[in-house]
Computed example of a mutant assay.
Amino acid sequence: MNPGPSVDPAVTDLLGLLAYAELGSFFRLTDDAALAPTLRDKGRLASLAAEEQRRYELLRERLVEYGADPEEAMEPFVEPLDSWHARTEPQSWVESLVKTYVGDGIAGDFYRKVAELADPGTGSLVETVLAEESRGAFISETVRAALEEDPALAGRLSLWARRLVGEALSQAQQVAVARPRLAALLAEDGGGDDAGIGDLAAVTRMFGSIADRHAARLKAMGLSD
């Protein structure tokens, strides 16, 4: 099954990347729910996991509409995303929550910026999939409560958040090198013969442009950069 002739292959790549990311988020939140210390936390995380599953299905359905095989579209991103998660294995439940909010959040900001350079329909879908209000409110509240109970956590979690940003940038660069047609969306003209192809500097500049969202997440959790 191949994408229809009117679909930009870079859009198929973007949707495949997001679909695998959402599928991974579902499994991680399910694991976090099992480890949560209270029934309330278990229930909230289970609800968030169900939301990730719903978003995965939206992306999968859009890929099918475009004539793409969802599994084939996701396959190129299995190794880089799995590698990112292996490099950022949290050491505690609270670290896992910070990773979900900060690490996945800043990666999502990057995907959102790329989607803005695609067609309006893709941009709208990506914005819906990457909405994080429910997740952000729960994690911010939970991390703040943990800091009130143990203020010494603040320094460690701030360092952890900084590391996650660096690893997210590394992940984005790896994907840009592996999928040049996706990186081509970073070109100002929408992608010429070589503009934006594997342009790691463009990836870095884009990360710099999403610093405000990152700072807002840290502030919401009571952490500093």
Rank of each mutant, 00 (worst) to 15 (best):
M1L: 12
N2S: 09
P3K: 12
P3M: 12
P5N: 09
S6Y: 04
D8L: 10
A10V: 02
D13F: 02
A19L: 12
L23K: 10
L23D: 11
F26I: 05
A33Q: 06
A33L: 09
L35F: 01
A36L: 03
A36H: 02
T38Y: 01
L39I: 12
R40V: 13
D41N: 06
K42W: 00
G43V: 12
G43C: 11
R44L: 12
S47C: 09
A50L: 13
Q53S: 15
L58Q: 14
R60V: 14
L63D: 05
E65N: 08
E65P: 02
G67E: 08
A68Q: 07
A73E: 04
A73W: 01
M74N: 01
P76E: 08
F77Q: 01
V78Y: 00
L81V: 08
L81R: 02
D82H: 07
S83T: 13
H85I: 07
T88F: 06
Q91D: 11
Q91K: 10
S92K: 05
S96M: 02
L97G: 00
V98K: 01
Y101M: 15
V102K: 05
G103V: 01
G103E: 04
G103S: 10
D104S: 14
D104W: 11
G105V: 04
I106S: 01
I106T: 11
K113E: 14
K113L: 09
K113A: 09
V114A: 08
A118S: 13
D119T: 15
G121L: 13
G121N: 13
T122Y: 06
T122D: 08
G123Q: 07
L130S: 03
A131Q: 13
E132F: 00
E132Y: 00
S140R: 03
S140G: 15
E141L: 10
A145T: 10
A145V: 00
A145S: 13
L147H: 08
E149N: 06
D150K: 14
A152Q: 12
L153I: 06
L157H: 02
L159E: 15
L164K: 05
V165S: 05
Q173E: 15
Q173G: 11
Q174G: 13
Q174T: 14
A176P: 01
R179T: 09
R179N: 08
A183G: 15
A184T: 03
A187T: 00
A187P: 03
A187H: 02
D189W: 02
D194N: 04
I197Y: 11
A202Q: 06
V203A: 06
V203C: 07
R205A: 10
M206H: 00
G208P: 08
G208N: 14
S209K: 10
D212F: 08
D212C: 00
A215R: 15
A216T: 08
R217E: 11
K219V: 07
M221A: 14
L223N: 03
L223M: 13
S224D: 14
D225F: 10
